[in-house]
């Protein structure tokens, strides 16, 4: 199991357009990725390819989230997703 943490950089938090960009990127991956707020048990982690799950997570600007994935290429995949979360997508 690979694991990464990321700090939400978008000013509006992880919803609206930033959430859409993130979910689309997860959807491109051949592996399953979960997302949870830092400190929450891994069992409560949600499907990162679901925009509705991401929105219900309610992650705001500055919050830390944990991404988890298994399988081949998981490390590289998570690194690329962290990069997306740590960019202010709303400003672009």
């Amino acid at each position: 199991m690979s694991e990464r943490t990321a700090v939400i950089a978008s000013r509006v938090g992880l919803h609206a357009r930033p959430a859409g960009i993130f979910v689309a990127a997860v959807g491109e991956l051949p592996i399953e990725v979960t997302i949870a707020m830092a400190g929450e048990p891994a069992d409560d982690a949600m499907d990162a390819s679901s925009i509705l799950s991401i929105m219900s997570l309610g992650a705001s600007n500055g919050d830390t989230v944990v991404l988890r994935a298994d399988g081949e290429g998981a490390d590289d995949a998570l690194d690329s997703l962290v990069k997306i979360l740590e960019t202010d997508l709303d400003a672009e």
Binding site: A16, G20, V23, D47, S49, S50, I51, L52, S53
Partner: peptide, 16 residues
């Protein structure tokens, strides 16, 4: 466009 893009993602949302 943003409304349509977001609703498109919701339509096939795995959780739903």
């Amino acid at each position: 466009r943003e409304v349509l893009e977001a609703t498109a993602l919701m339509a096939n949302d795995p959780m739903l």
